[in-house]
Computed example of a mutant assay.
Amino acid sequence: MTATADAPTAAATSLPAARRRPLAGPQRGARRRGAALGLLAWLVGLLFFLPAAWMVLTSLHSEQDAATNPPSLGASLTWDGYRTFFGADGGASPWPSLVNSLTASVCSTLLVLVLALPAAYALSLRPVRKWTDVLFFFLSTKMLPVVAGLLPIYLFAKNVDMLDNIWLLVILYTSMNLPIAVWMMQSFLADIPVAIIEAAQIDGAPLRTILARVVAPVAGPGIAATSLICFIFSWNEMLFARVLTGVRAQTAPVFLTSFITSQGLFLAKVCAASVVISLPVLAAGFAAQDKLVQGLSLGAVK
């Protein structure tokens, strides 16, 4: 009886001791590697974040403090750079340029989606002969250096009287972003089950309804990721905007270059303008970050 009664007690007392056993060598190594990778990820993240943080800090300094070498971290903060950017000192107002950039980016992105969705649908959900050759042709159009097509486009815009016209930039940005949009959305739509499309066709839904009510909701994350990338490319483009616009269609990146004058580089004002011009892209990315991650990871795991 005594031996029988003592057996469960011995087992119960030995269980915590087994749990307190030190980890084996492979487990300790895995934890150390995980900690090292986590630390490396934080360092890389800080490395990418430091230039943006430095730009924001410099925008809050005066021109004298911003021009010091080495830079002064403890200098007094001021909003003079932002006041100058928004025309408080009698300078040009940035609002027309911001509106032009917003118009060109939003309109071109919407046109890209309208054109890319049917094209990607045809290449992914409907059998097309040599569809890989078609996708390679789309992507090959991005291999031409932009500056190589600048002069022909300028001459064409001059002959049709479209210089300094915001709608010329809309057309150019649409044509520039359409190949990469078709390429991305083709991979997203390829993951949609064909049975959903066939069920809609059996119910008598036309192609327009299938694209709007069946394909678009299912491929929403991929469409959001494509839209955000096209918007960023259009918002940041400066070469065509610099050459093809003047005053009426001037975009925000072109307006930013006006702070670089023959008198020198006004570093604090440039940083303040850069922060303000970057805010719409950052806001769009923050608002669609879940859709962006989900869209870019579509098809990664089968």
Results as ranks from 00 to 15, higher is better:
Ala216Val: 09
Leu239Thr: 13
Val275Tyr: 01
Val293Lys: 13
Leu279His: 03
Thr68Leu: 12
Val293Gln: 11
Ala200Cys: 05
Ile210Ala: 06
Leu207His: 11
Gly34Val: 07
Ala92Pro: 06
Leu43Pro: 09
Gly90Thr: 03
Tyr173Trp: 07
Trp95Pro: 02
Asp161His: 15
Pro193Arg: 04
Thr209Ile: 08
Val218Pro: 03
Leu102Asn: 02
Leu102Gln: 02
Pro145Glu: 05
Thr9Ser: 15
Val114Trp: 01
Ala241Leu: 04
Pro193Asn: 09
His61Gln: 13
Ile180His: 00
Asn177Met: 00
Glu237Asn: 02
Ala272Thr: 03
Pro94Lys: 02
Lys291Tyr: 14
Gly222Val: 01
Thr261Gln: 08
Thr109Ser: 06
Leu256Ile: 05
Met238Glu: 06
Ala272Met: 05
Ala252Met: 14
Trp131Asn: 10
Trp235Leu: 04
Ala12Asn: 11
Met176Ala: 11
Leu98Val: 06
Ile196Met: 13
Ser278Asn: 05
Val215Tyr: 03
Phe137Leu: 03
Pro280Met: 07
Pro217Lys: 00
Leu298Asp: 00
Leu151Ser: 12
Ala3Phe: 07
Leu172Phe: 08
Arg83Trp: 07
Val293Arg: 14
Gly74Leu: 13
Val275Asp: 03
Gln201Ala: 13
Thr13Asp: 12
Thr251Leu: 01
Tyr82Leu: 04
Ala268Pro: 01
Asn159Cys: 09
Asp6Met: 15
Ala52Phe: 15
Ser14Thr: 08
Leu279Val: 12
Lys269Leu: 08
Pro253Tyr: 01
Gly87Val: 06
Ala283Leu: 15
Ser187Leu: 04
Ala36Trp: 10
Trp79Ala: 13
Val112Met: 02
Ser258Phe: 04
Pro253Asp: 03
Leu57Thr: 09
Pro51Lys: 12
Asp133Pro: 00
Ser14Gln: 12
Leu178Cys: 01
Arg126Gln: 14
Lys130Glu: 10
Val99Asn: 08
Val146Asn: 14
Leu46Tyr: 08
Asn69Leu: 13
Ala120Thr: 01
Met162His: 07
Asp203Thr: 04
Tyr121Cys: 02
Ala268Arg: 02
Phe86Tyr: 11
Thr2Met: 13
Leu244Gln: 03
Pro70Ser: 11
Cys230Ser: 14
Ala35Phe: 10
Asn69Val: 15
Ser187Cys: 03
Leu102Trp: 02
Val146Phe: 08
Leu73Gly: 06
Thr257Asp: 05
Val99Ser: 11
Val56Asn: 06
Leu211Val: 11
Ser234Tyr: 00
Met55Tyr: 10
Glu63Gly: 07
Ala24Lys: 12
Val270Ser: 06
Asn177Val: 00
Thr103Asp: 04
Ser97Ile: 01
Thr109Gly: 02
Ala181Thr: 00
Leu169Met: 14
Arg32Glu: 12
Pro145Leu: 06
Gly38Ala: 12
Val106Ala: 08
Tyr173Gln: 05
Gly246Arg: 10
Ala30Cys: 09
Leu267Phe: 12
Pro152His: 09
Pro96Gly: 12
Ala36Cys: 11
Val146Gln: 15
Phe233Cys: 05
Gly91Arg: 02
Leu151Cys: 10
Ser72Asn: 13
Val147Met: 14
Asn165Glu: 12
Tyr173Lys: 03
Ser175His: 08
Asp161Thr: 14
Lys158Trp: 13
Leu282Trp: 05
Cys271Ala: 15
Asp164Phe: 01
Met176Glu: 00
Gly264Asp: 04
Gly91Met: 06
Asp191Pro: 03
Asn177Asp: 02
Ala35Ile: 09
